[in-house]
Amino acid sequence: MISSANIDAVPTTPLGLSNLPRLARRYPLVLLGGGLLMLLIILALAAPLYAGDPQNMDPFVRLQPPSAEHWFGTDNLGRDVFARTVYGARISMMVGLISALLAACTGLLMGVVAGYVHRFDNVIMRVMDALMSIPTILLAIALISLTGPGIGILIVAVTLPQTPSVTRLVRSVVVSVRERPYVEAAVCGGARLPKVLRRHILPSTIPPLMVQSAIVCADAIMIEAGLSFLGVGVPPEIPSWGNMISSSRVYLASAPLTIFAPGIFLTLTVLAVNLLGDGLRDLFDPRAKRRR
């Protein structure tokens, strides 16, 4: 995955469990963020194995405090808050991952075109400027208010405002790389455009793209939760962290855990992704770390 241009910059520590302590010292954030994220993903995927039914309502145990049966208590409809919280992780992570992937692909395409094809540069970048000037949440609200809520439009609404940052990043890398001697040499040597792009230009965009994707993923998870909190995100029948916080708002004084449990999981997830992103940046650009 790492280009030949960057391979010198990455210390060659062999990957393996025996090197874990050394890796942990060198890249603590990658391990911390990655580990926390893995744990949360496993919790989310394995939810049916250990948590109860998140939809099961029991009117006799409304707004209960934590107990052996309901670890995080119950909400206003008598549903198990713990089950809803771990199931809620699924939708958040799904939206986060798909948005990051979509934004990375779109941004890569637009960025390469803008950086390499001079004719389209100005048009693409001005469109991106315009997209950037519209507040993310408002743009998503406008989109969803026109179509009605749904997972598909939610993912579009979360992804669209994230593409400008990726496009700008990729374009700046492409613009700086395409003037390098080795690219000029490849072009002079008769390499065709697809090969120049694949072999010489795209590899340099991968490391910064991965860092940016982590940031996009963290943002997407936050925006999805925010939209669900406002009532325009995930449809209310699906347990999601934003929905849970929104529907428990009035019970803050009597059952605070109905808000804090999803809130803490949401914060931990975003934190894990952010730490992973910071760690990847250190890993790909050790000079930046020394400067810090």
């Binding site: 963290a218 808000i259 803490i264 914060t267 975003v270």
Partner: peptide, 11 residues
């Protein structure tokens, strides 16, 4: 960067 405003707000 990681705490959403509505989580810290309710807290």
């Amino acid at each position: 960067y990681s705490v959403p405003v509505f989580v810290i707000g309710y807290f």
